[in-house]
């Protein structure tokens, strides 16, 4: 019975366009920028850290690619990969969706955590992956973040988190909401012990994630153009009955409104993070 409730109305017929779309390019060789619509060689794009060379659009990247961009080669050691989501609300289709996303994203949850080095300085790093359930935060995401923070506390090293999330994971209901408290309380303890917290908000960082750990860095950074905010644009427009400006809730908007320390281009990310970490290791290095 419950299944009936959740089943989506499936379309009976597929519509097939008569003429093939003009921008068709062989899959893989060329990539079109969704922002400026210009096409470029995928190889070239990859060499440019997945940033459009024409308009600087930052393509969303997965957690593994991100780790490769930021950490010293071969230094990453994953933590807590053994944690997997349950289905606490017996949500129809939830388990299947998780399995599908594991294949799609190449990661087993919406976050990957571990230790690694940036220019030979050890850090604990957590990277969210928006390809997995829109990076939404359920029990596993919360638990992995908490454990990563505790690890950083134990090792006395900086904690760096890259956020990319639509917010709390609805399929886990109020348990997801409570992960906001769990992660924030863990950061507080780490902070009280003198721990360094760096957050980098990437596209998108909204809802419960933006209203918890993402905003709690000693330094809050963001990638250019990233969507960052608490409530969804549509909800706000419906509430205030007003059309919002295009740049509303972008990283640039947040910088202007005093919510960010800086916006960092992806190509400079490692260098800047390295500098921040270095500036905090004065006198503490062996």
């Amino acid at each position: 019975m419950l299944k009936d409730i959740f089943s989506k109305n499936k379309k009976k017929y597929a519509t097939i366009p008569v003429t093939p779309s003009k921008s068709d390019v062989p899959v893989g060789i060329m990539t079109k920028c969704p922002e400026c619509k210009k096409a470029m060689f995928t190889k070239e794009l990859e060499q440019h850290f997945m940033v459009c060379s024409h308009c600087d659009y930052h393509f969303p990247i997965g957690a593994i690619d991100r780790l490769n961009l930021v950490l010293d080669e071969g230094s990453f050691v994953e933590l807590d990969a053994q944690l997997e989501s349950e289905n606490p609300l017996s949500f129809p289709g939830y388990k299947e969706k998780l399995e599908k996303d594991k294949v799609k994203s190449g990661v087993n949850e919406a976050i990957v955590t571990g230790t690694g080095t940036i220019d030979n300085r050890l850090v604990v790093i957590a990277v969210m992956d928006s390809n997995f359930r829109m990076g939404s935060m359920g029990s596993v995401v919360g638990e992995k973040i908490k454990r990563a923070i505790e690890k950083a506390d134990e090792l006395k090293v900086p904690f760096i988190i890259f956020t990319a999330s639509g917010g709390a994971r609805m399929q886990e209901g109020v348990l997801s909401l409570m992960q906001m408290a769990k992660t924030s309380v863990a950061l507080k303890r780490f902070s009280d012990h003198g721990g360094l917290i760096i957050t980098v908000m990437t596209h998108p960082t909204t809802g419960g994630v933006s209203a918890s750990f993402a905003s709690l860095g000693d330094y809050n950074f963001a990638e250019p153009g990233a969507l960052i905010g608490f409530s969804g644009r549509r909800i706000i427009e419906q509430t205030i009955r007003e059309k919002l400006p295009d740049d509303f809730q972008t990283a640039e908007f947040q910088l202007q409104h005093g919510q960010l320390d800086a916006i960092i281009h992806r190509k400079d990310m490692k260098e800047k993070l390295s500098l921040i970490v270095e500036l905090h290791s004065y006198g503490g290095e062996e």
């Binding site: 944690l83 997997e84 989501s85 349950e86 596993v140 638990e143 348990l175 309380v185």
Partner: peptide, 8 residues
């Protein structure tokens, strides 16, 4: 808060 969550 550390205890809240259901996972495997």
């Amino acid at each position: 808060y550390a205890k809240i969550g259901v996972f495997f």
